[in-house]
Every structure is written in C-alpha cells, then in structure tokens.
Simulated assay, not measured.
Amino acid sequence: MYDEVDYPEPGQVERRAVGGAESARAGRLWWDGAADAYQAEHGDFLRDAGFVWSPEGVDEAEAGLLGDVSGKRVLEVGCGAGQCGRWLRSRGVREVVGFDLARRQLQHSGRIDEQTGHRLPVVQADAQRMPFADDSFDVVFSAFGAFPFVPAAESALAEAGRVLRPGGRFVFSVTHPIRWCFPDDPTEQGMTVNQSYFDRRAYVEEDGAGRAVYVEHHHTVGDWLRGIVAAGLVPQDMVEPEWPQDNDQVWGGWGPVRGRMVPGTAIFQAVKPV
C-alpha cells in the first residue's frame, strides 16, 4: 500500500487468498524494487544503528522490550537494512544475526556496515522457512519485518518458536489488526471504516498478467495470539503504542492525526517455557 515517489508503481488491486510461495515471490520482487526508496525516505528516522519498533517511534533504548540481551544469541526476522540488529551490536551484544527476503535490503545492510563499522551477519531467507536449527537463539525479534507479509500466522510463528531456546524471549511488531478496517490514509478522511475486520483476504497488487507483485496479509488479534500459543510460546504482553506529541512525521498510513485516536501498531511479547 505504498504510492510515494520512486516506489514501484502499484498494480491492479485485488482482495484474494494468496499462498506462501506466491506471497514470498511478490515480497522479493517488491522489496528489491522498493529498498532504495524506502531507505532514502525512512533512513534518518530508523538511523543506521537504531532500534525503532514502529512508526510511532517506540525506541528499544527506552522501551526495553527485549529485556537484558547481554550474553545472549539474538535473531532478527525480516531485518531490512539491519538497523535494529546493528544497534544491538553497537551496544556490545556479541551474537546477532539478521535475515531478510530481499537481496537489495541486505545490500543496504552491507553498505551501512561499511559506514558504521558495526557489522551484522545477514542471510537471505524466508520467515516461513527459517534456515536455522532448533533451539538456536535466546532472543528472536522482528520490528515490522516479515510477519505482515506471511499468509499463515501460525506457520511463521511456529518457525520463530522452533528456533527459540527454552526460556527465550520472542517480541515482534506488526500493523495493528484494527487498521485493516480503515483506508491507508493518515488524515481525518482515513477515519471511516471501509473493510471488515474479519475479512482475511490479502491485499494484492498484480501486474498485467495477474501475478502478485505486492502482498500484505491480515490477521486478527486472536489469530496472532492463537499462533503464539500454537507455537508453544506463552504470551506476556501486547503493547499498543500511543502516538507521541513530539512525532509529527507521516509514514504511509501512519501519522499523528489518526495515530492519536486509533492504534497503528501492535507489539507482542512471548516467552518459550523451560
């Protein structure tokens, strides 16, 4: 749902079911084409080594949602250009790994590594099939990475649970499910409900041949919670950030006008039992 200058041109919009393979293909295509514009537009807000959970500006340095990560092995799901993982590295966390579906995003990560001197090991991979062994990480997190773009919440969350060690923490942020009801408009005009909260058909942009070139999926709050439990994890909290008074930027469908009345982000916290 992006139409800013220099982003890939949106195709014909449909609402339909999309499977995992088609969704992953569309994600690679779109994010490889959008990475340059995305980093140019949002790079200052994200910072080269910064940990921002959401467009509201929730900063891990203040929120501490991951808890104490010193001495922990950490995985970032859908790392983009690696800003969050690189911030952890800059704070002395020795083992941080990131992965993303888009090769171009990872190229930006390498570029920023060279500029900052804080290197984040990254790999190109799909959140639906994480290339890591069981019980590999003490902390798994995702800041708007991957999970809004997977068709089955339970399968992706199961992968996160699989690679997390017993006693480990899982934290991820996504578009707040209630936002699915509203148009992608951060102004007063975007306050009118025009879509059923319970309609789980994906938002799909298609090329002339009917192939998906951008896909975004909707899961309700209950879907996310059931997925967390099915993954063998125990939910701890769901954070719904309020829009801060000092943040006047507009980010796609997020902005101060609507953001101070309707939540735009949901951050889920869970742990894996010992």
Rank of each mutant, 00 (worst) to 15 (best):
residue 7 Y to F: 15
residue 16 R to I: 00
residue 22 E to S: 06
residue 26 A to Q: 05
residue 27 G to F: 01
residue 29 L to D: 11
residue 30 W to Y: 15
residue 34 A to K: 12
residue 39 Q to Y: 07
residue 40 A to Y: 07
residue 44 D to Y: 02
residue 45 F to D: 08
residue 49 A to M: 13
residue 57 G to M: 14
residue 59 D to N: 10
residue 63 A to R: 09
residue 63 A to Y: 01
residue 74 V to S: 08
residue 74 V to Q: 06
residue 76 E to I: 05
residue 79 C to F: 05
residue 80 G to S: 06
residue 81 A to Q: 11
residue 82 G to H: 09
residue 86 R to E: 07
residue 99 F to K: 02
residue 102 A to V: 04
residue 105 Q to T: 07
residue 105 Q to N: 15
residue 105 Q to A: 12
residue 107 Q to W: 05
residue 107 Q to P: 03
residue 112 I to G: 02
residue 117 G to I: 09
residue 121 P to S: 07
residue 122 V to D: 02
residue 127 A to E: 03
residue 127 A to H: 01
residue 132 F to I: 09
residue 137 F to W: 11
residue 138 D to V: 10
residue 140 V to A: 10
residue 141 F to W: 12
residue 143 A to H: 09
residue 145 G to W: 01
residue 146 A to H: 04
residue 151 P to H: 01
residue 157 L to G: 07
residue 157 L to M: 13
residue 158 A to T: 14
residue 164 L to K: 13
residue 168 G to F: 02
residue 169 R to A: 05
residue 171 V to F: 00
residue 173 S to C: 03
residue 175 T to L: 13
residue 175 T to A: 11
residue 177 P to L: 01
residue 178 I to E: 09
residue 182 F to V: 01
residue 188 E to M: 13
residue 191 M to P: 02
residue 192 T to H: 14
residue 192 T to C: 11
residue 194 N to K: 15
residue 195 Q to P: 00
residue 195 Q to N: 07
residue 205 E to L: 06
residue 211 R to C: 06
residue 214 Y to R: 12
residue 214 Y to M: 11
residue 215 V to N: 10
residue 228 I to S: 04
residue 232 G to P: 14
residue 234 V to P: 01
residue 241 P to K: 03
residue 244 P to H: 00
residue 247 N to F: 10
residue 248 D to F: 00
residue 250 V to L: 10
residue 252 G to P: 04
residue 253 G to E: 15
residue 254 W to M: 04
residue 255 G to F: 03
residue 255 G to C: 10
residue 257 V to T: 14
residue 260 R to K: 15
residue 267 I to Y: 00
residue 273 P to T: 09
residue 273 P to C: 01
residue 273 P to A: 08
